[in-house]
Design a protein around this nucleic acid. Structure first.
Lengths: 367, 367
DNA sequence: GTCAAGGGCTAACCCGATATAGCAGTCGGG
DNA sequence: CCCGACTGCTATATCGGGTTAGCCCTTGAC
């Protein structure tokens, strides 16, 4: 009853209890219907170029139904070279709670295309990645979604040359590959707009730099994310458009609540009193909430906050946080669609990030 | 370059660019080494019962290496009936951020067993589930981990009869199936102990009943969770052991921050002043933090809090939350181990839930 | 009555591996 | 000198389907 059986001791299981036993084969269906295997195959695959009488077709189909016939996908793959299987390969998308709604949407979309999806995690290790990719190719996977936890530039592994491929939440220099990425610049503009609309002008602070590249901590392999730069660039653009600029940028090593807390506490300790904060993600915003509460400042009356990600956290906070959604579901679904699409739709597909209303923004009350 | 090709128009791809092309076959290796396919196969599979001279073995291996031979897993499966593949099937584990660290651990463990793992999500729909299971069986999956988002009783689908199976975070009446579940009763006792140790006695409140069955909202298919009952039962047991009992239980429809907030606000509004709260999960505890802050009460000086799950949230809160971990990683890994284990280890495997220290508990200050 | 066209099917091969039976050659013993 | 045992390998069947070539039979036209 174990899933593992040493290959050595395994004889092609016959009648043995287990996942592979007691399957009805096409030959049995053919025999029951009194036709040849070929005829049965024609009927089951619905080949129209082969002439089988309606009556025979009915006999075969009924035999298949009564016997509970299900074709063995393995042998179909062997013959056709097509597995009806795709794979989603990432470093941490499935195993961490940050971007994993991607998974649900991708699985769902794959199902709509009548395809099964493998999910593999490389943990950011190049050799693990190569082993996994090889293994999947050995199983005749039809195509790959190559996904990343956070938006970044990647190098496409050599093994994937010539294989149908879509990049998800990451970019490569090769423009013939379809890529799905969030429109971070647009999101930055949206964030700035939301504050400008309420009359915030020159005391808007940004939390969550750094202005230069963001490197993930050791757990993310120390790689460089691009979302950081783009969010900030969008904010600056929109402000510049109104002849304004950020009052300041608080660079943080990481994007956890602790970092937001410390950054805001620091601002306040130095006598800086922003009217609004733009936080690079909801966790930083959470930290900002904590620091402001500790200082006796109210949100949004004293300080307005807008943030990015629209994770569950945004709805948990009080007041609820205005946050610009990272459209993970949409991205996952589109990536699979692109992979299954007949005509290649190469290049970058930027997904719009939309602002989810909360109660963390109001007009500034000059103190 | 698309992953989808209509079967009708597909001829067995030869030399065509794509995932299945240009593979080196065993026959080519055999020819290059000047031996028969059989001999090459014996060498590659390392069969010791067949006699092949060291010299020939070396020739075959070197030929395989130079040609970059990789066995076609599909045909191996067809012949051996063993796919080296398992599947983790759940309703929402992979696609929601609550229990998905299970996935990472399971994938990791599968990899250690040199096995690839399919992940499938049924969204709680019985017909979707059946389609998925059939599809996976058609691919000769060696075994299944049948997992659930939250601990509950399930009925094992008929399709899985006779197939290697492990239940993860759920229980069935059939005792011949290995089941991995968290020790919720023990966790309840641990929670109570933590408070008793600090001298809390008769003003301990529990947030997050109900005392009867917990039914998930529509998004969880309205099914009954058992964790609820067990956590509470453990708490009561431990208190009873010290001749104490809960001062009260606040039943909540759901386990979100809002529910915790309202429950605690309600308590306080009615003049009830607990010295300690036991919250059924971290999100409820978060709500409790908010309600207590709004009432000007401090944690832990005025009210101590202990909770369950030890999600990231516990570390984000200030003061950090004492929370009893739901050992998702451990559970995912053990489930895969049990599935791959040679000798069946049937029945329930309760995983200990351990308290992670925070700063949310102190000795009660009588007011 | 003969032949071509087409309808309705079957035989045989193929995908790429594993598994089993058996065949040449060598060596040692009687 | 013959036989058996052993070594080292090959030929062939097999897994479960898909695909191609071609066979037989009927029909209709000439």
């Amino acid at each position: 009853m174990s899933a593992k059986s040493k290959r050595k001791s395994t004889r092609p299981s016959r009648g043995q209890a287990g996942a592979g036993s007691r399957r009805v084969t096409l030959a049995q269906v053919a025999e029951a219907a009194g036709v040849s295997r070929s005829a049965a195959s024609f009927v089951m695959t619905g080949r129209t170029d082969q002439r089988i009488s309606e009556e025979t077709q009915a006999r075969v189909r009924s035999a298949a139904a009564t016997l509970g016939y299900r074709p063995d996908v393995t042998s179909q793959i062997l013959r056709t070279g097509q597995s009806g299987t795709i794979a989603l390969v990432s470093e941490f998308v499935a195993s961490t709670p940050y971007a994993n709604r991607i998974i649900g949407a991708a699985l769902d979309q794959a199902r709509k295309h009548d395809t099964v999806m493998f999910i593999a995690e490389t943990l950011g290790e190049k050799d693990t990645e190569e082993r996994l990719l090889h293994n999947l190719l050995d199983r005749r996977v039809d195509g790959f979604v190559y996904a990343s936890m956070f938006t970044q530039n990647v190098t496409i592994p050599d093994v994937l040359r010539g294989v149908p491929l879509v990049l998800l939440n990451c970019c490569a220099s090769d423009d013939r590959v379809p890529m799905v990425i969030p429109d971070e610049v647009g999101a930055g503009r949206t964030a700035a707009q939301a504050l400008l609309r309420h009359g915030h002008r020159d005391r808007i602070h940004y939390i969550g730099g750094p202005t230069s590249d963001f490197r993930g901590g050791p757990e993310w392999g120390g790689r460089v994310g691009t979302a950081v730069l783009d969010r900030l660039a969008g904010v600056k653009e929109e402000l510049a458009h109104a002849n304004l600029r950020l009052a300041g940028i608080s660079e943080t090593d990481n994007w956890e609540p602790r970092n937001g807390r410390e950054a805001v506490a620091n601002l306040l300790a130095h006598g800086t009193r922003p009217t609004a904060l733009i936080c690079a993600n909801d966790r930083l915003a959470f930290g900002a909430y904590q620091a402001l509460a500790a200082a006796g400042l109210r949100i949004p009356e004293d300080v307005s906050i807008v943030s990015f990600d629209h994770s569950d956290l945004a709805g948990w906070l009080q007041p609820s946080l205005n946050s610009i959604a990272l459209p993970h579901e949409e991205m996952g679904a589109l990536a699979v669609d692109l992979l299954m699409s007949e005509k290649p739709r190469t290049g970058k597909h930027a997904i719009r990030m939309t602002l989810h209303q909360g109660n963390s923004i109001s007009t500034p009350h000059p103190s």
